[in-house]
Design a protein around this nucleic acid. Structure first.
Lengths: 250, 250
DNA sequence: CATTTTTCAATCAAAAACAATCAAAAATAA
DNA sequence: TTATTTTTGATTGTTTTTGATTGAAAAATG
């Protein structure tokens, strides 16, 4: 039985029964226990089910917790795919900086079991971070009323007292000469500093952001790894020596 | 039978019967007494039921008191009065610190035309502050998930870079010997520092807070002016030399 | 009130389920 | 075809769950 077929079957059985044992799945799919375990691990990572000791159970098996962020990752949007892929780079126990932005927001469900400490300047991320019970520090600063992000010199000063394993940023433009750019100078300054405080920096951007440039420069291309959902040949060729691009797989 | 399945079953049985014995659950789930006991312990910790001798009962969420609603309504208007009265002390152009808490929250509508700059540790105040278009700085720090306030050493450090004309604090206890007190030590530390950074400090408290003491001391009585809605004679007499009490006038 | 019975939490060893590893098999690429 | 990668299932030692047993605590009984 082929992998996607098995996965479909598992989800199907689970849909009928709420919970299944590994053994039931072994019988239903005629494959080994090891294989089923691997399937369950993968499906759990994709947020399609929850593993429990002895088998698996439906994710939100009726009432509780349908979340702020998560709209059943079954048909993940581009941004969700990028977010999930990005979160694979995070190790257990990492301290990470999560920039404001919709893509970074979508990373939050995938942080749940990583025991990370998150620092952010995004007030709008706090509900989701709280929901997934993630230890969170907010930097200080001026509350920018439109975007609900923290900016300004106080924000920079506050941010400067942290150090990170990884930072994850959204960005508006990726350009061969202009580098990473974003419209707002104040937010650019925050992103810039965040990059400099981290071992590794990741920029999350869908393919439409390539060869675009905004007003404020955040960093040079080589200062961060780009995570995106697709690159056409031309882009791949143009950027290959300038930066590190990782494309969503699976 | 898998753990979550058993748990579902227990809750289900309990939903029908109000109370169940351990033995009934042993029969219903075909597992041992020990296992059921463990399940009950866990479910109790998750606040899904209440253990009783011999079994478990569902926690009576009916809630008898309608008076709670009335009480909170009356409380709300008291708090509003206090809030309005407190905001009279603010001058145009002041820089003020607004502590987390319901009473301080109610001050926000009265700040609109005062051209104040607000610094706060209360994430829950931001919506209102934004609504009334008040220039707002948030201090940094650890996000305390329950109260949505910023606390911890990072919060203190961040707060320490501001200076205020006035600070407004909520408080849980006002006591002749214990001074101003509040239940949480971390929040107490923030309040304490805020007072020391300000020219003037105001404590907002309704009359029920007098002669009460909580766990953590915030300050001595003479370090802040108390704003309250009413004081009986005895309190007025006892406190007159120790602190400055202003009673709402309308 | 003392005694008996029931229920309880704590402990422990057996059983079940687990992640990790590895070599064989299958699929894919060269 | 052959070489290389991916997937699979068996095996390993480890962790988690389980049910039996214990003496202590709580209710029931006389």
């Amino acid at each position: 039985m082929l992998t996607p077929e098995r996965h479909r079957k598992i989800i199907e059985v689970l849909g009928e029964k709420q919970v299944v044992t590994i053994q039931e799945l072994v019988d239903a799919t005629v494959s080994s226990e090891s294989t089923i375990r691997r399937d369950l691990s993968q499906l759990q990572k994709e947020k399609k089910l929850k593993r429990v000791h002895g088998g698996a159970s439906l994710l939100h098996q009726k009432s509780e917790e349908l979340s702020v962020v998560e709209k059943s990752a079954r048909n993940a949007s581009e941004k969700e795919q990028i977010a999930q892929f990005a979160s694979d780079f995070i190790d257990k126990g990492d301290c990470i900086y999560l920039d404001a932005g919709t893509t970074t927001l979508k990373m939050i469900p995938f942080l749940q079991d990583k025991e990370v400490t998150v620092v952010t300047n995004a007030i709008s991320h706090l509900d989701a971070l709280n929901e997934y019970e993630i230890k969170t520090y907010l930097i200080g600063g001026l509350v920018k009323s439109k975007t609900k992000a923290l900016v300004g010199s106080a924000a920079l000063k506050s941010l400067n007292s942290y150090r990170f394993d990884k930072v994850f940023l959204g960005i508006n433009g990726i350009h061969l000469h202009a580098g990473f750019t974003t419209p707002d100078p104040e937010e650019a300054a925050v992103k810039q500093l965040a990059i400099s405080l981290s071992q590794k920096a990741f920029v999350l951007a869908d393919h439409t952001k390539f060869n675009e440039a905004s007003f404020s420069k955040v960093a040079e291309l080589n200062e961060a790894i780009i995570i995106t959902n697709e690159v056409d040949e031309e882009v791949a060729y143009d950027y290959q020596d300038k930066t590190d691009i990782r494309v969503v797989t699976s």
